[in-house]
Amino acid sequence: MLLHICRWLQDNSFLAVINGTAWTAAAVEIVHYFSMFILVGLMVIVDLRVLGLVGLRQDATQLADRLFPWIWGSLAFNFLSGFLMFAGSATAYYRNDIFYDKMGVTLVAIVANIIVQQKVSKWNQLPAMPAWAKLLAVVSIGLWVGAIIAGVEVPALTGVG
């Protein structure tokens, strides 16, 4: 079933043109990298604020409110460009274990982002950030770095991408 969808994506002429034309393929890659930098970088700032390592003069809730729209906006660009890159060689990614690792780690990282966003104003009203909030912030940074490592391992170890 999944393989069937992958075949269909790969044979889709529109997606094939995007991946087969040098400048559109490059544009998609640029969007994927740049949105990843902004997404991960901004999320790390929020996490570091929870850890008390950055922006202590900033109100944590306000900082999160300011940055999260950009985090989710970058994620949208990142997802869309990533999907286009995936579609070009869908059947190869389908057989690629590290790609599943990357998707799994990224998904958990996104869930961690959502929890931080939901809880940050509550934590902010406490006298100090709770220990589990700080733990979550550390885990969140670790997950994003892990997603990057898994991401570079996909082409490095398997030649796909």
Binding site: F37, V40, G41, V44
Partner: peptide
């Protein structure tokens, strides 16, 4: 991955 992690922090703090 090190290069990309550094870039994320660099570009993120700039952004």
């Amino acid at each position: 991955a090190t290069h990309f992690t550094g870039l994320s922090i660099w570009i993120g703090t700039i952004a």
